[in-house]
């Protein structure tokens, strides 16, 4: 099922009628730099790392407004925004759609963490092949109910898995990458703060971590 085929009377959560924001609050928010975050095929650990900036996050929120993210539960990026943080690799068609939505709406797109950069733990399935993984999980699984026929889940609403897990930069253009599994909170803060302050992106050796 595609979005176009959804009946007109269906109302999405982001289209729900809501009380209008206080004009001053809205103005203050619009004056800030708009940021969005998402996890594709990841564990949300990189998003947690952003929260791990602790009290620095309070200072950061004076300068940025977080739009679409797991923290705000907003499902669509409203208009064009400055920075998008992508966590996780590309493992299904929904990931591709989300990633393209981010690329379309973000001026700067940053890959965060090992999964977004090279596929990470999910990409370990690339060495075995999709069929072998699904067979192991649903057909030959020792915990499968023996009385039922083996079924690999399939439904039009379940995103189709890609044959391999891809780094995000193999699907869309990525501007910068923050390595780590997950990246350190202070590294995430440094990159965002550098960009906000016009210093540009840099990853000196004492900030760079791959694990």
């Amino acid at each position: 099922m595609t979005l176009d085929s959804v009946p007109k009377e269906v109302i999405f959560s982001h289209d729900m009628p809501a009380k209008a924001l206080d004009p001053e609050l809205r103005k203050a928010r619009e004056a800030k730099v708009q940021i969005a975050t998402i996890s594709l095929c990841g564990c949300w650990g990189c998003n947690l790392s952003l929260l791990d900036t602790d009290e620095a996050l309070v200072d950061l929120l004076d300068k940025v407004h977080i739009t679409r993210s797991s923290f705000t539960d907003i499902k669509r990026i409203p208009g064009q925004i400055a920075v998008g943080l992508i966590e996780g690799g590309v493992a299904n068609d929904e990931n591709i759609e989300t990633l393209e939505h981010f690329r379309e709406h973000c001026d700067i797109l940053i890959a965060t963490g090992a999964c977004a950069i090279w596929g990470g733990v999910p990409s370990m399935r690339n060495m075995h092949g999709l069929e072998a993984c699904l067979r192991e999980a649903y057909v030959d699984s020792p915990t499968r109910p023996v009385q039922s026929a083996p079924v690999v889940p399939h439904h039009p609403d379940i995103p189709k898995l890609t044959k391999k897990v891809y780094p995000v930069h193999e699907v869309v253009q990525i501007d910068y990458s923050i390595p780590g599994c997950p990246p350190d909170g202070r590294t995430m803060f440094k990159v965002i703060d550098d960009l906000l302050s016009g210093r540009g992106f840099s990853m000196p050796p004492d900030f760079n971590r791959f694990d």
């Binding site: 890959a111 950069i117 090279w118 780094p167 930069h169 990525i174 910068y176 990458s177 923050i178 390595p179 840099s202 990853m203 000196p204 050796p205 760079n208 971590r209 791959f210």
Partner: peptide, 9 residues
Amino acid sequence: AYEVEMTAS
């Protein structure tokens, strides 16, 4: 890789 400031291949 840290010294050459590599982030992604």
